[in-house]
Write a protein that binds this DNA or RNA. Sequence first.
DNA 1: TCTGGGGTCCTAGGACCC
DNA 2: TCTGGGGTCCTAGGACCC
Length: 428
Amino acid sequence: MFCYYRHTDSKEVFKMTDRIVFHIDANSAYLSWEAAYRLQHGASVDLREVPSIVGGDQAKRHGIVLAKSIPAKKFGILTGETVHSAFEKCPELIMVPPCYHRYIIASDSMVELIRGYSPSVQRYSVDEVFLEYTDKSVPFMTAAMEISRRIKNELGFTVNIGISSNKLLAKMASDFTKPDRIHTLFKEEIQDKMWPLPVEDLFMVGSRTKGKLNGRGIFTIGQLARLDRDYICSWLKKPGLLIWEYANGIENSPVISGSVPLKSVGNSTTLPFNVETKDEAYKVLLAISEMIGLRIRNLNMCGNVISVALKNHLFYSYSHQKKLMLPTDSTNNIYRTSIRLFDEMWQGEPLRNFSISLSQLESNDFFQLSLVEKYNKKEHLLDSALDDIRLRYGQKSVYRSCFLYSGIDPVIGGVLEEESYPMMSGSL
DNA sequence: TCTGGGGTCCTAGGACCC
DNA sequence: TCTGGGGTCCTAGGACCC
């Protein structure tokens, strides 16, 4: 037993030989938040009670399902499938477009409430939070029930809470039956609660790894757990060792309450049509460069490596990257490098997706003082002036004339607010 | 009426240096 | 003529997560 209650006289005491970690996961977050918001603003239907999805984009029935209600799930609708296919399964489906700004607000409120229960709280993603439970005066289950109840009453949506002695097991536990449930998954429960699950339910086993494992007769987490350690290491290398340890409940990363440094900034777009000319492709790359430039300057950072990735009309993807001589935060520099990389790899086939990313980031404090002043003062002044206008009056308040009548947005991509919270990584 | 957009981390091969 | 080995950087691609 790693954790138990003992009744002595009238007092309930619990003794721990291990950590207590909570994983708190908002149930179908985007959809719940959308539903809660709409109810608070006078809507008569609760989206959670009818077949509904969050997804698509401006073009009506284009894009994918980002979140689904439980009634929608009953029609066999899956997260990530095309909106088109979802409507085939359920023609009366209600679809609402995503509103990320709203979700950040909901997410912030959830994190704020949870912070009241521990000094050590990690926002793992927009809808997931880890909490290291250290309060010896209140049993963890009492605290979990209170958090769950308060989020429901005060914020208007439900969560699943997983409880264990490490982050991995807590996360696996929160994924058991939903919604509005609290589950434990302590070490001694692994065999009963986790090992019978299909191997793809394990964190970090995606479709490719599932295929490889199934190909060798491994279908459950338990089967993976019982493999020989050296065998899985030599077969699937480091990721293999990782999932083998996860299958055995081995994981000991800390709950990180601070922010972790951003490693890269990127934007991408999938167009609803094929891009067939270099001229059009350049415009898309410029529009993306504008957004990355704006974001990186807004962060007071600059980056050393620019990479461009393309997907052709068959959705086959490939990429090229370039390490720069000097770090940059200039829109023009990002754009010029991007089109050079584009020219290197484009064979003339129709394209559907464009993505640019800036990585090997560093603070631009030193850079700004020492280099940019001499190097590209004019460009820098222009960028700053445009940033001010766009941040104040909106992204499309000012744009380059080449976009007029082009059918291409002058600035592509999102994520301007709230760059500050850490992104999750595969190793938890 | 086909396919989002934001990230992180790992690997393998080649170049280059000592 | 024989043909070392380690370390680091750069690049392309792949896998995974929400």
